[in-house]
């Protein structure tokens, strides 16, 4: 057989390895309780049902978990953009003393394990009266997302030539107006991509959210803490609920992936 055929076979094999588990979790979540208990389990969607998913959604804490996850995710986007965009702009536009150390500091913070922050933060938030609130989780997630936001937005701003801003200022715009009228419209798609990235990070983070809350659980925290005393059907439905946004997100973000994860983020 020739080389191209081997390449095709290898690609299909990897796609199966990556794709089939996704198929299985969807299949399991969309099966009835009864067909989940059968053995061997049916490999084809012969008996689709929303029973398992509905039971999952009806479980205490799941819908509030959804709401909390959304609240935290959106709050994290807003806060990290508010704080991070100016930093990214500074890195992209100014050759200031301390730019190197600033970037180094951001990279270093990314290397800190979340767990190292979460446990002491729980005590700090307890003292500040923020413990067990979505604010606490939002603050932690913003801290996790911020370095990335700064680095991504810096890369985006570098892509808008300095000369365009200067042109705007020569033709009568103030620095702020030049930024809003000329830089922002061009940076917006990239910033939207950064925002989605931030949301996924927040949506996926489980350890910190678990440690910082008791009742105001985010969805993954709720799933994790109830894992050991839940039936398999609940776990499959939970897995599916957590995976679904990822599939959608990647479908939207394919164009930006290589730039964001591939070059900017590393």
């Amino acid at each position: 057989m020739n080389r191209r055929v081997w390449v095709q076979i290898a690609c299909v094999a990897i796609t199966l390895f990556m794709g089939v588990p996704l198929y299985f979790i969807a299949l399991a979540a969309l099966s009835s309780r009864e067909s989940l208990n059968r053995f061997p389990m049916p490999m084809l969607p012969t008996d689709p049902s929303v029973e398992t998913l509905r039971t999952f959604l009806d479980t205490t804490g799941i819908v509030p978990g959804f709401v909390n996850s959304l609240t935290v995710g959106i709050g994290t986007i807003v806060l990290s953009l508010l704080i991070g965009v100016p930093g990214g702009y500074a890195v992209a536009r100014y050759a200031f003393r301390g730019r190197g150390p600033y970037q180094m500091f951001l990279l270093l913070t990314r290397a800190l394990p979340i767990v190292v922050l979460s446990v002491p933060l729980a005590r700090i938030f307890l003292n500040a009266g923020l413990y067990d609130t979505t604010y606490a989780v939002t603050l932690l997630h913003t801290a996790l997302a911020l370095p990335t936001t700064v680095l991504i937005t810096a890369a985006i701003f570098v892509g808008v030539s300095r000369e365009q801003e200067e042109a705007a200022m020569v033709f009568g715009a103030s620095p702020l107006k030049a930024f809003l009228r000329v830089v922002m419209p061009q940076a917006l798609p990239g910033i939207a991509a950064a925002a989605m990235f931030t949301f996924v990070l927040s949506w996926n983070e489980v350890l910190g959210a678990t440690i910082l809350t008791l009742n105001q659980r985010t969805l993954p925290a709720q799933v994790l803490t109830t894992l050991s005393d839940s039936p398999l059907a609940y776990r499959f439905a939970g897995g599916f609920a957590l995976v679904l946004p990822a599939v959608v997100f990647i479908a939207i973000m394919r164009r930006y992936l290589l730039n964001m994860w591939g070059t900017t983020l590393r």
């Binding site: 030539s161 000369e163 365009q164 200067e166 042109a167 705007a168 000329v182 061009q186």
Partner: peptide, 8 residues
């Protein structure tokens, strides 16, 4: 400007 710097 050298790069024209017209707004895309």
């Amino acid at each position: 400007f050298q790069s024209y710097a017209i707004f895309p």
